[in-house]
Design a protein around this nucleic acid. Structure first.
Lengths: 207, 207
DNA sequence: CATTAATGTTAGCGCTTACTTACATTTTTA
DNA sequence: TAAAAATGTAAGTAAGCGCTAACATTAATG
């Protein structure tokens, strides 16, 4: 049955994420999947193969192919907020995979790099090419587009991991949208006091 | 002997970092420390206690107590570069501990939070209070100082983990100082095209 | 130098783990 | 409905793990 295989894959994702590769036992995975342990081994020749196939089955995702055109119809701020939001969504969806990625770098450096690539690489490229376009239009300053993309996404990746894996009682900065707004604003216009950019508008409520 | 204890603690840091708590065996740790396995258990009643004491012995560090006054004598850009540099240095020094922190969140959530707190908390506060001072002096825009500090350090934390744990052949962005310069610049004056901030000076060498 | 403390050596216990064998039972398929 | 494929049950194997016991050896101490 195709169903059984998937149930095992899903259970293994959850348990590898929660307890790590060594900490999750095949017996436990089978139990969580609602199958006999032997059935697990009939589908996957070893625990290691199960791990690899689980990773393979969960790690690819396109998800923002046609995003670039959309961005061009938004203001710079809105475009960045859009990217940040989607990025955070994707990270949330792939929460378990990211946890595994953090836990098992030593076991599977290649696989982990592959996940990272699939998860971040595409969005970095999309954002970088958006920056390039805007720079050519004279709308942005000169900076390395890919480096800029990594800086921008890095702020959010770090925010995400901190929220998901470190913070316990969802404290101060749980307001996702407020964080996005503030980070985007910093990225757009910086922090140094200057002429215009006060943008005091939507700060304390009311719009 | 005091020496023996420390040798075991050091060996356990290295191996827990490399293979995780479950992956590192007491036999292997003892061998790396150059002692008999039994000696390890005479110093630490269990593998778990060894792990905890190792964490405790490595996780505290003040390291930038008197930094704030120093910062006030620097330009905004230089102050941020200074902070970023010190932050990256600290992360490099504590490389192994950070790896463990990533690997063992599920086992020791409390301990991991404590490390994170010791490692990042102090520097966040220092930077935030620097921001506050600068804002009161009218030198910076209005933004949440702690959130700003987290955004700034987040860019670098992400850069660090990417370099250390993901990238293999030190590729494109190995130039630490160039990354610091670009990130600081983005943070200071943003990315949106405006009036002044071309700052084309020290971009390609030659100051 | 004699006593005590710290370490080494070896062997092993009890437990868990990934994985297997043999056979019964269910489910799917033709 | 009969053959075939998928799953279950139960028992067990071999290996590795954390950890201990008993005793010998070395190093530090007074």
């Amino acid at each position: 049955m195709r169903d059984t295989r998937d149930k095992i894959l899903d259970a293994s994702l959850a348990l590898f994420s929660k307890k790590g590769f060594l900490g999750a036992t095949t017996k436990e995975i089978a139990k969580k999947a609602g199958v006999a342990e032997l059935t697990l081994f009939r589908h996957f020749s070893s625990k290691e193969r199960l791990f690899e196939e689980m990773i393979a089955s969960h790690s690819f995702l396109p998800a923002l192919k046609g995003l670039l055109p959309e961005l061009k119809e938004l203001s710079y701020r809105d475009a960045l907020a859009q990217i940040a939001g989607r990025f955070l969504n994707r990270l949330s969806e792939r929460r378990d995979l990211i946890k595994i990625m953090h836990s098992e770098i030593h076991l599977y450096p290649a696989k982990v790099r592959e996940i990272q690539q699939n998860l971040v690489g595409e969005i970095v490229k999309t954002l970088a090419s958006y920056f390039r376009g805007m720079q050519e239009g004279g709308l942005l300053k000169e900076f390395d587009p890919e480096l800029g993309a990594r800086a921008f996404l890095g702020m959010f990746f770090q925010y995400f991991t901190n929220q998901e894996f470190v913070v316990e009682s969802k404290q101060k900065f749980e307001n996702r949208d407020a964080v996005i707004r503030e980070y985007v604003n910093i990225f757009v216009s910086g922090t140094e006091a200057g002429k215009s950019n006060n943008w005091s508008g939507s700060r304390d409520g009311v719009i």
